[in-house]
């Protein structure tokens, strides 16, 4: 055919087809998306410190292993209360003239999703130690350590934030490990990562591919919830798998008077609302509230704590816990 033997016609046609399809599947949808979405009214933009932290997140390439997107499938429900929507990202603009927009949605989950990590793990002490040496808090972790975000100082100044590092993870025995501004910014950014709730929760898009619901009669069995797994997901990163905690940072649960004692109300309220009564340890955040734990799940966790690592105390029933949780929710003004 003559057409195929004329390089002008042939190559122009191919280019035209490609550009036309590009406009349809990339240019138009992208422009459409950026013009017709605005951030949620109750979404808080990043402040200066958090923005600086985001830049550290970008330059260290955290996106290689951490996603920031909750898909509309049920398996992603652990990462956020609702699936992500376009408005969640609408506020993100180009980092600067030289660098592109960083939505940081990512494509690999070698590590956990961070969309809602500000709610899940808000503790400053935990985050700093975890960044200095992830294996000090999560033994199985393969995340890189970031010691260059810390300084070693002879004495800790008034403004300085010291990180207590367990002996075996110290690089030198001399000096104190102090957080630099960079890592404080980074943690501020991580703490700011919270899913903004929709003003009307019934507008939440649905999670698809739901598991088949268990028949009602199976639900009656209280033991069906795995306390060990729930502990691993919610408590273990601080209190550790062996329940011994970390010296100078997170208290042990093994042999703890609160865990073994009879004051169930105190124990439930610590899990629900957090704890800051002991100056030698870091502040505990409101794990139960932040992670939306149900009375059944709290019961399973408490019973796991009461009966593991040599602990041997009376287990509790869901009813008891339920009452306390309801009371706490009433009084804490939710």
């Amino acid at each position: 055919m003559e057409f195929f033997n004329n390089h002008r016609k042939l190559f122009t046609t191919a280019l035209f087809m490609f550009v036309a399809l590009t406009i349809i599947v990339a240019l138009k949808p992208a422009i459409n998306n950026q013009e017709n979405n605005s951030p949620l009214p109750n979404a808080e933009p990043l402040n200066k410190v958090e923005m600086a932290g985001k830049k550290v997140y970008i330059s260290e390439g955290c996106v290689a292993c951490h996603t920031q997107q909750v898909r509309n499938v049920e398996m992603d429900e652990v990462w956020g209360k609702r699936p992500g929507i376009a408005a969640d990202y609408a506020n993100i603009r180009r980092t600067d003239f030289w660098r592109n927009t960083a939505t940081l949605m990512g494509t690999e989950r070698t590590g956990p999703d961070l969309t809602n990590v500000g709610n899940r793990q808000p503790s400053l002490a935990w985050n700093l130690l975890h960044l200095y040496q992830p294996r000090a808090v999560v033994k199985e972790s393969i995340m890189p350590a970031y010691p260059w975000l810390f300084e070693i100082k002879d004495s800790v100044g008034v403004e300085d934030v010291e990180v207590i590092v367990p002996e075996e993870y110290r690089k030198t025995d001399k000096g104190k490990v102090v957080a630099t501004q960079k890592v404080l910014d980074l943690v501020a950014y991580l703490q700011s990562l919270k899913q903004t709730p929709l003003t009307n929760e019934s507008d939440n898009p649905e999670f698809l591919y739901k598991k088949k619901k268990e028949p009602e009669f199976l639900k009656e069995k209280v033991g069906s919830l795995d306390g060990k797994a729930l502990y691993a997901s919610n408590c273990q990163s601080c209190h550790q798998a062996n329940g011994e905690g970390l010296k100078g940072a997170f208290p042990p649960l093994k042999g703890s008077s609160i865990v073994l004692g009879d004051d169930l109300e105190l124990l439930v309220s610590i899990i629900m609302l957090g704890y800051d009564a002991r100056p030698e340890y870091a502040v505990m955040n409101a794990v139960g509230k932040d992670n939306g734990l149900t009375p059944e799940e709290i019961t399973a966790i408490i019973n796991h704590e009461k009966t593991s690592w040599g602990n041997d105390a009376q287990t509790v029933s869901t009813e008891e816990v339920k009452k306390i949780v309801e009371f706490i929710e009433l009084t804490s003004g939710k």
Partner: peptide, 10 residues
């Protein structure tokens, strides 16, 4: 260009 999800589509 490429604000928000525009970046993801691109």
């Amino acid at each position: 260009w490429q604000i928000g999800l525009g970046e993801t589509i691109v």
